[in-house]
Amino acid sequence: MNPATLDYNLSNALRASVARELRISTRQLSELFNPLLFFLVVVVFIPLGISSDPALLTKLAPGMIWVIALLATLLSLEGLFKGDFEDGSLEQMVISPLPLVWLVLIKVFSHWLVTGIPLTLLAPVLGLMLFLPTDAYWILMLSLFLGTASLSLVGSIGAALTVSLRRGGLVLSLIVMPLYVPILIFGADTVNSAAHGLSYAFSLAVLGVFLLFALLAAPFAAAGALKISVNT
């Protein structure tokens, strides 16, 4: 037999992985709409439950939208690696010549594509419902665009650590929540400042830096955690 040749084509491997993740995401549409629906339902309920006073809602809007976005992301995190762990795909990924870090990045990216991006696009509608000043819409979207990417990246570490636990959801929340605090603070602050016509550049920059840092560190941490998780 011909010994396997060493001309492993990295771009083919990456393309195959991206195609797979996108196909899986688009075929599980219920999972795609779950966080969105949650987002929408909570925003609809806030005026009903608290007050329909526009002045109050305007005040609450930035923080509310951010807290809900964070919870919606958290809800969807548990499934990030779960399916692949249960059906053995994860093992095949670990023993594939393609470094696991790439696979984590691809999975996180497709997770963001079906959670963070739809939330970002939906945000102005919710802003409208909560009487957020229209000037802040673009900044709201921009902050969510940067922030939800960080949420997915940081969340992947927790998802990777807990993937082999039968009821990992609670532990996952406990691991990830503290790491989400800075994103929440600066995300909400960005929108708050924009809503009051103040300078939001600093908060937005912090969100950007956080994303950059998460992009550099989180895939490695998650890949390491996955290797530990399959070690059973």
Binding site: N12, A13, R15, A16, S17, A19, R20, R23, I24, R27, Q28, G83, D84, E86, D87, G88, S89, L90, E91, Q92, M93, S96, L98
Partner: peptide, 20 residues
Amino acid sequence: QTGVKKTLTARENVDWYFGL
């Protein structure tokens, strides 16, 4: 656990495997 994804078709599963 063979790593065959249920939501994908047989062809997609095989193509993914050899790609990866």
